[in-house]
């Protein structure tokens, strides 16, 4: 009997969750920033995963055609100094750059938020150690810290990820810690403590959901930052190595031919800017949405 009731109760809870999620989704979709950002990113994802749908040209093979041909119906974005189709290179680069934005955000987001959570919740020694460590890392400009780590590790895509991971958690830890400090004193946390719940349950079920939103919003702008920084590293020659197409290294190739082939620099940058705008719009919409929800 009781187990049956329990099951029914669980069913009801799940149903409530679903209704709430549906409502949230409806509100989110009504937000123009969120909607347009989402659409842009979905299109970018499709391009990233199915580049072959968009172009027949090989992005890397050198024998494709005449070098430095301006944009035409044959070559939508023209060709580069090796005669490769710039459109194909930009399209095939999407996957790497999207990876750079997303993968380099997820790891610091998780690690940083966890550390911030621990620092904020437990305070004392843990807090002090984490925060002092943050102070030291904050003394380095972001780009300089990334470059320094790449200097030690060497060039390449993988090392860019590692460098950004090592640097990125700082901001997330700070954001989440500040929120935890605010939430920790709330009545419902004290109630949970009085009810005798363990630390783990309080942290993950009660504190985390109420402290994570600024970090989620920041994650969207951090994704833009990562993409731009990684592209900047590739532009300097410290990141993705040629002939692999990546927007930053495409721009770097274009920089050498700026007087003769403007198309080599214009189009990769447009793709990068549009992707960045997609993330920013999503973040803007998310901010509005969370503010509305908080009310």
């Amino acid at each position: 009997m009781t187990s049956n009731l329990n099951k029914q109760g669980q069913h009801l809870v799940i149903q409530q969750h679903l209704i709430r999620m549906k409502d949230s989704l409806r509100i989110a979709l009504r937000n123009p920033s969120f909607l347009s950002g989402g659409i842009i990113l979905i299109v970018i994802c499709i391009i990233a995963f199915f580049p072959q749908w968009f172009t027949d040209y090989d992005p890397v093979a050198i024998s494709a055609g005449d070098p430095l041909v301006p944009p035409s119906t044959n070559h939508l974005f023209g060709t580069d100094n090796f005669g490769r189709d710039v459109f194909a290179r930009v399209i095939y680069a999407t996957k790497i750059d999207l990876q750079l934005a997303v993968v380099s955000t997820i790891v610091p987001f998780v690690v940083g938020s966890l550390l911030g959570l621990l620092a904020g919740y437990y305070g004392k020694i843990i807090d002090m150690v984490i925060m002092r460590f943050l102070d030291v890392l904050m003394a380095f400009p972001f780009t300089v810290l990334v470059i320094s780590i790449i200097t030690i590790l060497g060039n390449g895509l993988q090392n860019i990820f590692i460098a950004i991971w090592l640097v990125g958690w700082i901001a997330f830890a700070r954001l989440v810690r500040a929120e935890v400090l605010r939430v920790k004193e709330s009545e419902f946390i004290q109630a949970a403590r009085v009810a005798g719940f363990g630390d783990r349950r309080i942290i993950f079920r009660h504190v985390l959901p109420n402290a994570i939103s600024p970090a989620v919003v920041y994650a969207t702008s951090y994704a833009v930052l990562c993409m731009l920084t990684a592209a900047g590293m590739s532009f300097l020659g410290l990141g993705v190595q040629p002939p692999t197409p990546e927007w930053g290294s495409l721009l770097s190739e274009g920089r050498s031919f700026i007087g003769v082939a403007w198309w080599m620099t214009l189009f990769p940058g447009i793709f990068m800017a549009v992707t960045g705008i997609g993330f920013s719009l999503l973040g803007d919409g998310l901010t509005d949405f969370l503010r509305a929800k908080g009310r």
Binding site: S221, V224, L228, A231, G232, F235, G248, L251, G254, R255, I258, W262, T265, L266, P268, G269, M272, A273, T275, G276, I277, F279, S280, L281, D284
Partner: peptide, 17 residues
């Protein structure tokens, strides 16, 4: 929003162009 999402070195190249 657009300005925040743009790589500054790309903008630099465009200005240069």
């Amino acid at each position: 929003l657009a300005a925040i999402s743009m790589p500054s070195f790309w903008l630099g190249i465009l200005l240069m162009l």
